[in-house]
Design a protein around this nucleic acid. Structure first.
Lengths: 342, 342
DNA sequence: CTGTTAGCGCTTTCAA
DNA sequence: TTGAAAGCGCTAACAG
């Protein structure tokens, strides 16, 4: 530390008062039992000396550090984690809190160490975040402090913040149905992932919202478009096999934007134009969605808001267990048109 | 804090020794002046009780918190910042340090507050990171602690970690020249950005590396391809105007991968095939580079290593001012072929 | 070899 | 309305 950092004692001396008085004034305790004149002297002294309280010292007494631990499985791989962190950071800053972050890479041993390291630093609470929304079991060590799950679903004893994929899927499918599409295929589904909440919560929720919308219009999902992965190459392959079928769909719903990129590539190769020959909608609002030509209509993952909400819950001590669904706004771009008359 | 967290006093009592002795043992001080038997008792007690030192309390005496502040202008917008953070996180974890992060959004007031907040928490040092490499002037408040610049260039009084864009550009251009290309254009240059280190260090360095390579082959840059921005739409427009010229280039060097995406789109529209009709190389190794078809050959920004190096310098007290250049490896994919015979 | 004592900077009874 | 003093958990002189 900068030797000679200004301490409360310095301020008190400068103001000609006791440390106690200075502390009382600066912390604006409710029972304001200090003369107006004295408080002015304290404020003036603090200002003049550039006094800043030492949080570590304070925390020794108060057991509060105004520091939150943000523990995630992976931050780097996609830009989404960045959005969650940004939201969390903003909310924290607004309330004069600060974020300690750690990444576990999904390794339980690294996770344990990270949690211990944060606990050693007396953090006030945990945000436990997942890159892809899925069901998790909370690490034992975390129960020492209030915790909220971010983009993850827990065991009902803990609050969690999740994107509302089901409603988003309903909207996305409805956007197609309203325009008159009926032969609609999904790119990127697979029975396995759809049923395994430990791998993905999104897959199941999205499919179920899509089915609900189709049912409302008396329509059914067109076959084809299966794929295990959700990367662009998976979308490309899935779309190629889809296009090899006898009857082409009028529109496709991609389970995410990366799949949609692959689909665009396959369409272009097949000489199909989006949206004149085929409409496409998707999920996530990855940066790529705005880069494609034509721009991709997609339901945006509200990661920034989710990050913000997670720390707000923590700081407001609104720790009722249960899920908070954050809406996913539909970003309409240019990938949807009415189906060809044929 | 978990009330009843185990303290050093508990351990000492359990071991039947004084707090001092326990402290000495657990910190493995060099002057090992404690009987072997006593130290065993201490270790056993600590283990049994699950003792963990309170870092805040310790820091009050030692003025060390094993905590580093990572202050950046923007983390969320691109996935790159995530890579820098990941590298920093890994290096910190290996040395049992932890990262406090803050984002300033480029707002000096937010920045000031963030720095104060970290200083209040007695952090050991700063990593000051920029999203896009550029020249900065270090905030005054930061001089209170050791600091290293990450992806930024300072005033020579401070160590900084930068990607070696100049060499990368030389390599990238050489990859083209070796295959026989001579009519090479750059997409995304502009005199303004190239000369303004406060906006970008990359632009100038990349252009100069390219020119050096061309000179070695007695070649000159083909005209055209200017653009202010570095987004896909800029690349698309710049490429369209380039293609409207009388003689087409045999290859293009895009100043980043997003521009290259736009270029791909323009080429496809013009009926040009990559790499048969035109080769393309680029910089960054954004995720998009691997998603394009054909895959884009590009010089990778070594963000993870840079983040790692920054905290290593800080923790090793290797704070000699000056620049550390981190090499940018060339990721060869499928966007380069020999030029058409014509 | 080990224990006593004195703080680090702050908050918080308790007394004056 | 104010101040003295204790103590948060730990480390570091200094004795013993």
């Amino acid at each position: 530390m900068a030797r000679g950092r200004v301490t409360l004692a310095d301020v008190a001396r400068h103001a000609g008062l006791s440390v106690t008085a200075a502390s009382l004034v600066l912390n604006k305790r409710p029972g304001v039992r200090i003369s107006e004149e004295a408080r002015q002297r304290v404020f003036a002294a603090a200002e003049e000396l550039g006094y800043r309280p030492n949080v570590a010292a304070r925390s020794l007494r108060t057991r509060k550090t105004a520091t939150i631990a943000f523990v995630s499985d992976v931050v780097a791989t996609t830009r989404f984690a960045g959005d969650m962190i940004r939201g969390a950071l903003d909310a924290a800053r607004e309330r004069e809190h600060v974020l300690l972050i750690a990444e576990t890479q999904g390794d339980p041993e690294v996770e344990r160490q990270a949690i211990e390291a944060m606990l050693d630093r007396q953090i006030d609470g945990f945000v436990y975040a997942c890159m892809y929304s899925r069901r998790v079991t909370l690490p034992q060590a975390m129960s020492a402090r209030p915790t909220v799950l971010l983009n993850a679903d827990g065991d009902d004893s803990v609050p969690c913040v999740l994107p509302d994929d089901e409603s988003a899927a309903y909207q996305v499918a409805t956007a197609l149905l309203e325009r008159g599409h009926r032969r609609i295929a999904v790119i990127g589904r697979t029975a396995e992932i759809e049923r395994n909440p430990r791998r993905s919560l999104a897959a199941g929720a999205r499919l179920s919202g899509i089915r609900r919308a189709l049912a409302a219009y008396g329509a059914r999902l067109s076959p084809g478009g299966q794929s295990d992965g959700w990367e662009p190459s998976d979308g490309y392959e899935a779309t190629r096999t889809l296009l090899a079928r006898r009857t082409l769909p009028q529109a496709v719903i991609c389970m995410n934007d990366r799949l949609a990129l692959g689909a665009y590539q396959a369409f272009a190769e097949a000489g199909l134009t989006v949206p004149d020959d085929i409409s496409v909608v998707s999920f996530d609002d990855d940066a790529i969605a705005g880069w494609l030509r034509p721009g991709l209509t997609t339901a945006a993952l509200p990661h920034e808001q989710m990050g913000r909400l997670a720390v707000e819950l923590l700081l407001d001590w609104d720790l009722k267990p249960g899920k908070r669904w954050v809406p996913m706004p539909l970003h309409e771009r240019a990938s949807v048109a009415a189906p060809r008359q044929d």
